[in-house]
Amino acid sequence: MCLNELTIQEDVIETKYSIQLVSKLSGVGVHTIRAWEKRYQAVVPSRSDSGRREYNDTDLEKLVLLNQLCTLGHSIGKIANNEIPVLKEMLEKLGKVEDKTEKTESVELDYNLENSLSNMILGISAYKLDIVDHELNKIKLLTNTREIVVKILVPLLQKVGSLIQRRELTLSQEIAFHSLLKFHLGEIIFKSRKKNQSLEKIIIATPEGCFEEIPLLLSTLLMISKNFEIIYLGTNVQAGALLEATKATDASAVLLYLGPHSELDSASYYKKFIQFLDKKLEGDTRLYALKSHKIDQIESSFSKTHLVDNLRELDKKVVL
């Protein structure tokens, strides 16, 4: 099941987040979100036809603000019904809205990427997730999302992969680490993403049947660093839905992650999926496909598609 869906009406696209995804992005636990809704009507989302909660960007922004204020000592019961401008004003009075230029300079100059990576590798090797969590909290302050991916997260995941291969991490430990990483990546993306009509839009997703999300989140951070406006569809997206979203948003590019798939012949499945999009995408819309090393080589010639084998190659290939 996709983590978020799209409502498309009259050529307007609105992102709808599930409660699981809005929890990851806001930092507020799923049970807490439900409790705040029931007790205080803090954020009351719309509902799908099946009764599932569907949150929009305004709901997400309010949850982020409420979480920040509660962390600073406010009682949720006293602030839950305030509007977003009031919540922002409260944060300003607490000195939490800073000059972005000054903050960027101090963080970028003082932060040591190599030390942070070393600390996280030590934390993973000893399975001390509190160390990893602490370092991930620090990198949220960085504004260069490309450096976060290339200099910290890619080497960290390579180390985790080697530990798994040597069976020095159990399956449950791997799942716990990935859950922690996805939580922090969601927050970094929410903080860093740009919305501007002048920016080119890129749709990011995995094809139907692919549920691996971390490479997709890392790709999203890279695209933010290239000044794209991100339209994140998440995992398990049908080809038809991708085409419809591309037309509705006038996106100039689509980025797919081709990860492990339920089909026995994943390469053949992905080849057909890409061939369909390559023929149907209109105008100058580009398609980038990041292939997992677990997928066999996809042999074919495409007119609009750029196949890449790793994030560094993707970084070089995507140029506005």
Rank of each mutant, 00 (worst) to 15 (best):
S118W: 03
L87R: 07
S172P: 00
G234F: 01
G259S: 13
K100F: 11
L256H: 04
E229A: 09
I84W: 10
I33V: 10
K24L: 04
K279F: 09
L277P: 02
V160R: 08
D130N: 13
R47S: 03
K100H: 09
S50G: 00
I13G: 01
L242W: 03
E37P: 11
S192G: 11
L94G: 10
S125C: 03
E10S: 13
S252I: 00
D110E: 15
I131M: 12
L169V: 09
E208W: 13
G77A: 08
V44C: 00
I152K: 11
V12N: 11
R286T: 10
V30R: 07
T58L: 10
E147K: 13
R193H: 09
I204T: 13
P207D: 08
H306F: 07
L185D: 01
K272F: 10
S303W: 02
I131V: 15
K16P: 06
I152P: 07
L307G: 00
S46D: 13
S300M: 07
S172Y: 12
L65I: 05
E89R: 14
D284M: 09
L307V: 00
L63G: 06
E89T: 12
K272P: 01
Y111E: 09
L6F: 15
K103V: 07
G240L: 14
I139Q: 07
K279W: 06
